[in-house]
Amino acid sequence: MIVDWDDAYANGPHIEGADDYPGIWQKRAKAFRDELGARARLDIAYGEGERQRLDLFLPAGTTAGLAMFVHGGYWKAFDKSTWSHLARGAVESGWAVAMPSYTLAPEARIAGITEEIARALGVASEMVAGPVCLAGHSAGGHLVSRMLCRNAPLGETLRARIGNVVSISGLHDLRPLLRLEMNRILGLDDAEAVMESPALQYPAEGARLTCWVGSEERPEFLRQNDLLANIWTGLGAETSAVHALGKHHFDVIADLEDANSALTRLLTGERN
């Protein structure tokens, strides 16, 4: 039985050197943008809001398709500039990678952020032809999973282009968050928690989802990971659940930098 719900969803206090990670991420992100030069197209508007901007990172040769990475931060922290380096693996595999920022809570509700991600995906998909794959971390894992829900705010043509979706350490049932102190910022109520929980929605036809989590993550993140894969399998989706050995919440995403990692190859559809 969980007594301290805030602790159950807290990651930093349980990761050695947690305070160092944001600075490391920001340095690696800037170095990657500088390395790409003109192939890093920054601050493309997908809406009128201040944070409704995305970066698009282009491969050197022919583009295989569009990948989009959505960052985490409990819908209330970070922006696209912290995560640019995570595009490296897909870019070196020939994919264009879009990374959007989005309006943060409490200025936006989670339902509104879902709509923003759908708009960002729509704009990016008009710029890059071919198949689409999605990955997101933590709250971003929730957001990319929402794009696979039957009630996602996407047109049928775009939805048909989406192949692999990887929810990394994703939050798929938002009802427990109603118990957390952070809900003073998120502003979730019962109705929105249900509507915005992928585990409580139907997957779109042909949905392919991998729920990927570090084996050393908090028990609630392990449960949230396996929950969605389990439920959606029973609703006809093609799903799998992966526990990445030895990874915690802050380093589980690092393999996206490596074109040859199992995580990147899964996202881009490489099987050999």
Rank of each mutant, 00 (worst) to 15 (best):
R265E: 08
A191Q: 08
I24S: 12
D79S: 11
H249A: 03
Y21Q: 10
G12P: 02
N151R: 13
E156W: 00
E115L: 04
P131L: 00
L209F: 10
D226R: 13
N230G: 14
E196D: 12
S197F: 05
R161N: 11
F78M: 09
R161V: 07
M147F: 05
I185T: 15
G155A: 11
V213Q: 11
L158K: 00
E116N: 04
R159Q: 14
Q201A: 14
E116H: 01
A254D: 13
G155F: 13
A18F: 11
V123T: 13
Q201D: 03
G61Y: 04
G170D: 09
I168L: 15
P131W: 02
A108D: 01
A229D: 01
F221W: 11
R179L: 06
I24Q: 14
V242S: 06
F69Q: 05
R265Y: 04
S240M: 12
R33H: 00
W25F: 15
E257I: 01
G12Q: 11
P198K: 02
E205N: 09
N11S: 11
G163E: 13
Q52M: 12
D190N: 12
I110Q: 02
C149M: 07
R184T: 14
A96L: 02
H71M: 03
Y202I: 02
R33N: 06
G94A: 09
I113W: 07
M195R: 15
E156F: 01
V132C: 09
D251Q: 08
P22T: 09
D226C: 07
V70D: 03
V3E: 14
E181N: 12
E48S: 14
I117T: 09
S125T: 08
M68Q: 12
P13G: 04
L66G: 10
G163T: 13
F32N: 02
C133I: 01
A105P: 09
V213T: 14
D258W: 06
R33V: 15
A8Q: 04
G236Q: 03
A152T: 06
Y46W: 10
G49K: 09
V166H: 00
M147W: 00
A241N: 15
D258N: 15
D255V: 01
A77P: 00
N151D: 15
C211A: 13
Q224I: 05
G89T: 01
Q224D: 04
G136D: 05
A193H: 11
S125Y: 06
D189C: 07
S84Y: 06
T268A: 02
P203W: 08
G23L: 06
A259S: 14
N183M: 03
I110S: 00
R33I: 13
D7A: 15
L104G: 04
V70C: 00
P59Q: 08
D34E: 15
N164K: 14
L267K: 00
G61C: 05
G234C: 04
D190V: 11
G234V: 04
F57K: 04
E205S: 14
K30N: 10
L121C: 14
R208W: 07
T210E: 06
S240A: 12
A105G: 15
H14V: 09
H248K: 05
A40S: 10
A60H: 13
D55M: 07
H243Y: 08
S145C: 15
A111E: 11
A129L: 00
T157F: 06
A77Y: 03
G23F: 05
S93D: 12
